[in-house]
Simulated assay, not measured.
Amino acid sequence: MTTWQEFAAAAPRVSSIFARRHQQADRLCLLGTLRSDGYPRISPVEPCIFEGQLVIAGMPGTTKFLDLNRDPRFTLHNSIDDHDRAIASSVEGDDHGLKITIWKAGEPEQVTSPGQSGQGSPARLLP
């Protein structure tokens, strides 16, 4: 599992934007999971960084946690308004690690994964 420190070292700009937006939005984020029928589910969550881990807590047995127990892939979104610039980011995780996607107005989508190629965060453009 990737720690918050590893994520922040590999993607300092994304992690600082996430931390700032997380604070501004009173910690509210949207967690995207996959339902058992394969359709997406969006759930509001209030993650926190605790002992170096990004923690998403909630009531046991809720559908979002049943989704994650069945299929650990997820995406976590926070506010997409960065004052006058249109920018969005998402973090997706599965058994193979994290994938960070960044969208900026007028630019192609960029994807990076912490620890790729031993250098931390090389970005590759998606078609």
Rank of each mutant, 00 (worst) to 15 (best):
T3D: 10
T3A: 04
Q5V: 04
E6Q: 15
A8R: 05
A9N: 09
R13D: 12
S16P: 01
S16H: 14
F18C: 01
R20S: 08
R20C: 08
D26C: 06
L30E: 10
T33P: 07
L34M: 05
L34K: 05
L34N: 02
S36N: 09
D37N: 06
G38T: 10
Y39R: 06
Y39G: 12
R41E: 14
R41F: 02
R41D: 11
I42L: 13
S43H: 04
P44T: 00
P44H: 01
E46C: 08
C48W: 12
C48M: 08
Q53C: 07
L54K: 15
V55L: 09
V55A: 09
M59H: 11
M59K: 10
M59A: 13
P60M: 04
P60G: 14
T62W: 04
T62K: 13
T62M: 13
T63E: 09
K64T: 08
K64W: 03
F65N: 01
L66W: 00
L66I: 05
D67I: 09
N69Q: 09
D71F: 04
F74E: 10
T75E: 11
T75H: 11
L76H: 07
L76N: 06
N78M: 04
S79K: 10
S79R: 03
S79N: 08
S79G: 15
I80D: 03
D82I: 15
H83W: 12
D84A: 12
S90L: 08
S90E: 09
H96W: 14
H96N: 13
G97V: 10
K99I: 05
I102F: 03
K104F: 02
K104H: 09
A105I: 04
P108H: 12
Q110F: 04
Q110R: 12
V111M: 07
T112D: 00
S113C: 10
S113N: 05
S113T: 10
G115I: 13
Q116V: 04
S121A: 01
P122I: 10
L125M: 01
L125Y: 02
L126K: 13
L126S: 15
P127G: 09
